[in-house]
Amino acid sequence: MSESASTAQALEVGKARYPEEKASLRSLLSPLLFMAPAIVLVVVFFFIPVVIVLVISLTDMSTATGFNNWKWVQFDNYLRIATHPNTLPVLRNTLMYVALTLALFNVGMALVIALLTTHIPRRSGFLFRALWLLPRLTPSVVYIMMWKYVAADAPYGILNQHLLGPLGIPPTNWLPAQPWIFVILTNGFIGASFGMVIFTSAIESIPRDYMVAALVDGCSLWQRIRYLILPLLRWPLLFVTTYQTLSLLTSFEQILLLTEGQFGTEVWSLWAYQRALSNYWGNFQWGFGAALAAVLVLIGVVMALVYMRYFQFNQLVQEPKIEAL
């Protein structure tokens, strides 16, 4: 008797302390309260700007109209993009730039550096990785200026005078001659360090027993990379590929500094920037630029979705990863 009585009593007390309506309200509010600072940040700095860009892209706002005389033009800007003679070449440039920089450097070279520097003595590995961080640490204007010295027009430039000249290769205006090589190298040397850091830490967090087991099981070092390390790097590979695709799609400062989009190196984000914020005639076409930017956002979202599907993102999240034992 006493037992059931005390249970009933406990329930009674519980009810009194947490009345049902109040509980549901509280359970709704308190998480919101905790998330509020982050939500405010996301809304103010991420969400609202996108909305503003989308809104402006539906107007003819420019220096000529000012902020007062603009009018709604619906999808005129998008139609203009669709029929613009620059659209296809710029799109092709952008895809080439992103694909090559990503494949050769931001993922490819990053992986090679990470693998090499984790297979040599620790200290030397650290030194090499530190060297690869230098391009990222150098201010972009200085960094690109150095590249311009390297590739300066004939007869000047480090390439012409010191590297290729002595080999008997005639002096060339390297930048106009091979603009893409330099665009990809300048961006790639900066971009590789990001993936390098992520991949290195992922490789070093693979439990030592796995590494030993693979060798004892009969792997050569190369086979261990192929059968053990790379499969375990799937998650960081997805992350770096996705993140760097998006960041390359929107990056243009090195290209701006190096070629200003000349010699056929105009990419989409640079186009948007030049239309909206910095063109020769001084007529800043904010509406058209915003439409260009909006298209870029769309491309980015589609790419991210494709990656997630390709790498079976859901499966990766559900399954225990490296630490699983």
């Binding site: 027993d209 796995y210 087991a213 004892v216 099981d217 050569s220 499969p231 375990l232 034992l325």
Partner: peptide
């Protein structure tokens, strides 16, 4: 002689089964 040519089987405390 590298490990792969020693024809050894090894069992670890952590099992070290390849998770993938």
């Amino acid at each position: 002689v590298p490990p792969k040519n020693r024809n050894i089987g090894m069992v670890f405390q952590s099992y070290a089964l390849y998770p993938h």
